[in-house]
């Protein structure tokens, strides 16, 4: 099977191609390593019973932050209310809007359906990490292509595009159109998002 025969996975960021391409041993090792990290994290996490809250540490955008969480606390609520990282947005109850997309251990996930406790020991990257003095190329391309209107879906879209292009740096327009359907926009910025993603692929927008 040739690379181009593989349809891109419809969920941004789940790297079906790399998974299939990699040797089975390497893939298995990666999987085991991930499981091991999770197991360690679980072992390290404090025993929590009922609704009691505890202080835990989360690694967000390269910094360690101490946060107070209940077992039911979502990652999204902790980011927004305790760390004032409000780029990820609450839009849907089930993650079907993509507006709360953040990257955890390299994978895009919906922060509103992820428990904060499950993220202890993992690396969390939010849209804010793509800003700063020299914004990420995806941010610059979104601005240049005017891929935003009200802007409420935009941070989730930026993260999703970043994750998608990390896995598919040479994505074609067709792959972009079939690979970024996890994010919802009501203002109708999709045409501009396609332009922005293509601009990043072509290297037209400096990081």
């Amino acid at each position: 099977m040739k690379d181009q025969d593989l349809a891109p996975w419809p969920q941004a960021g789940f790297d079906r191609r790399a998974f299939l391409k990699g040797s089975s041993a390497a893939a298995a090792a990666t999987t085991l390593a991930t499981h091991a990290t999770q197991a360690q994290a679980q072992a390290a996490a404090p025993e929590i019973v009922g609704r009691q809250s505890r202080l835990v540490e989360l690694k967000v955008n390269g910094k360690t932050a101490s946060v107070r969480v209940e077992p039911r606390s979502t990652l999204l609520d902790v980011l927004r209310y305790q760390l004032q990282l409000t780029g990820a947005k609450p839009v849907s109850i089930d993650g079907s809007s993509g507006a709360s997309t953040v990257i955890v251990d390299g994978k895009p996930i919906a922060a509103n359906t992820t428990l904060a406790l499950d993220c202890v020991g993992k690396s969390i990257q939010t849209v804010e990490s793509l800003g700063g003095e020299k914004p990420d190329a995806v941010v610059s391309a979104f601005v240049h292509a005017d891929a935003m209107q009200c802007g409420f879906c935009t941070p989730g879209f930026v993260v999703a595009v970043r994750a998608f292009l990390d896995k598919n740096p040479g994505a074609t327009e067709e792959q972009i159109r079939s690979g970024l359907n996890g994010n919802l926009c009501r203002c109708g910025t999709y045409a501009n998002v396609v332009m922005a993603a293509l601009e990043v692929v072509k290297g037209g927008s400096r990081g």
């Binding site: 927004r80 849209v127 409420f152 941070p155």
Partner: peptide
């Protein structure tokens, strides 16, 4: 022209009513 608040919107620093805590 690039949107003057484009970077703020694209990087999550633009604050909406929901974001004011």
């Amino acid at each position: 022209h690039d949107r003057v608040d484009g970077v703020a919107k694209a990087t999550g620093t633009a604050k909406y009513a929901y974001d004011i805590n």
